[in-house]
Amino acid sequence: MTSAALGEQPDLTVVLREARRRRRISQWDLSLELGVSQRHVSFVELGRARPSRELLLRWMSALGAPLSLSNQALVSAGHAPAYDESPLDSHRLDQERAALRDLLVAHEPCPALLLDRGWNVVAANAGVAWLFDAVGVEVELPGPDPAAPGSSGVNLLDLALGELGAAVLNVPEVAASLLEQLRDEAVTEPSLRERVEQVAVVAASAAHAPSGPRYPPALVTRYATRHGELAFLSMFTTFGTPHSVTLASLRVELFLPADDATWAALGR
C-alpha cells in the first residue's frame, strides 16, 4: 500500500459524487453504463452500500477518472489500490524512463518535451532549447532524461501566457485551441481550472483579431523568431493503457515543422 493510502482518506461518497459531477453524468446514465440499478448507485453515493473492488474499478473507469483518483476511491472503500504509484526516477520505471528519453533525443533537431498533468516540463530535448532561444525565452530547461520529474520548475502554460505566447503570430487560433483542450482536461484535473480562466481571457481578447481559416486541417502555431517566421504542428503521444499513476500523468509533445522554411532553419 502506498504512503497516500496509509494517510487520511477523503470519504468515498465525496470522491464518487465529485467524480460524477465533473463528468456531468446522471445516476441513471451511470447505472446503465455499469449494469446496476440506479438505486444501487444512489445507495453507494450516500454511503448506504459498499461497492465491491471490481464494481468500483468499473465505476471510476466509466467516469474517466485519473488512476490516482481510482486508487483514492479504492482505499477509501477499504480496498487495496490497483495502480502503481512509483515515482518516475524509481527502478520500477527504468525501461519506461529510458523509452521517453530515447523518444525525445530521436526527435532532434525538432523540439520535443515531456509534460506532466499540470503542464510542467519534466524533460526536454535540444530542439526545445533552440526554439526557446530563437523566440527569446530565457528559462533553464531540464535535459532529455526524465529522472527528476518536475525539478526544472518550468511550466509550459506559464510560458504560453507570457514570453512564449508573446512570440505567437496567430494567437486567435492557438488560444481557442488551447482553451478547448484545457476545458476538457480540467474535468479530471481541477488544478487547471484557474488556467482555463486565464486562457479564456486571452482567447476572448483575440477573438476578433485578423486570422486565417477558422478550422484548418490541423493547428499550426506560427512564431516570430530571430530566424524569421517558424511554423510547427504539434502532436501528443502517451503510453498505451498505462497501469501506473505516474506514467498515466505524462505525455510527450512533439513539434513538427509545418513548412520548408522551418525545416531549413532547423537544418542550419
Rank of each mutant, 00 (worst) to 15 (best):
L6E: 15
Q9G: 08
Q9V: 12
R23Q: 08
R24F: 03
S26A: 01
V36K: 00
S37C: 04
V44I: 14
G47P: 11
R50N: 09
E54H: 10
R58D: 14
M60D: 10
G64T: 11
Q72S: 14
V75G: 11
G78Y: 04
L88A: 07
R92V: 09
L100R: 02
L104S: 08
A124K: 05
A126W: 09
D133L: 02
V135R: 01
E138M: 00
E140P: 03
A148Q: 15
G153Y: 02
L156Y: 03
L156P: 02
L157H: 10
D158A: 01
L161C: 05
G165Y: 06
N170W: 00
P172V: 01
E173T: 09
S177G: 10
L182P: 00
R183M: 00
E185A: 13
S191K: 12
L192V: 09
R195D: 14
A200Q: 14
A203W: 09
A206W: 03
H208T: 09
P213A: 14
R214I: 09
P216D: 01
A218K: 05
R222T: 03
T225L: 00
E229A: 12
A231P: 12
M235C: 14
T241G: 07
H243M: 11
H243S: 07
A248P: 07
R251G: 00
V252K: 09
L254G: 04
F255P: 03
A261I: 01
A264G: 05
L266C: 10
G267R: 15
